[in-house]
């Protein structure tokens, strides 16, 4: 279903995120997580809007716990944003209340 969002694992993190050469939005998701299910279609829609300019990735938190812990992610879903240089930027988004407009605003800030 996901044409614009690619799933990665911790092994891909350096290449896909830190060395992406473009801004990245990375969604840590879990199973048994209704807020994660709710975020998915919004994440996909915004990814489609910014296709070619910002990379949208998702990563399964349970399967990549070490990376999640290293980044201090301990809630699902959590969206972390990185700039072109692979530096984390802006506020992380999390919980049941992630709005499409908030996601868009964060992504636009990465491009500014």
């Amino acid at each position: 279903m996901s044409d614009h969002v690619k799933e990665i694992t911790a092994a891909d993190f350096d290449r896909e995120v830190l060395a992406a050469g473009e801004p990245v939005a990375l969604d840590f998701f879990s199973t048994e997580c209704p807020p994660c299910e709710a975020l998915a279609p919004k994440f996909e829609a915004v990814a489609e809007q910014f296709a070619g300019r910002v990379r949208f990735l998702k990563i399964f938190r349970q399967g990549n716990r070490e990376l999640a812990q290293r980044l201090g992610v301990s809630g699902s879903p959590t969206v972390v944003f990185f700039d072109r240089a692979g530096q984390e930027r802006g506020e992380r988004l999390g919980g049941d209340e992630i709005k499409r407009t908030a996601l868009k605003a964060q992504v636009e800030a990465l491009l500014a």
């Binding site: 938190r61 809630g75 959590t78 919980g95």
Partner: peptide, 16 residues
């Protein structure tokens, strides 16, 4: 710490 240790969803985060 919201999302970094503070949660309001046990089914989402309990297993960790």
């Amino acid at each position: 710490f919201k999302g970094r240790g503070i949660s309001t969803c046990a089914t989402c985060d309990g297993a960790y």
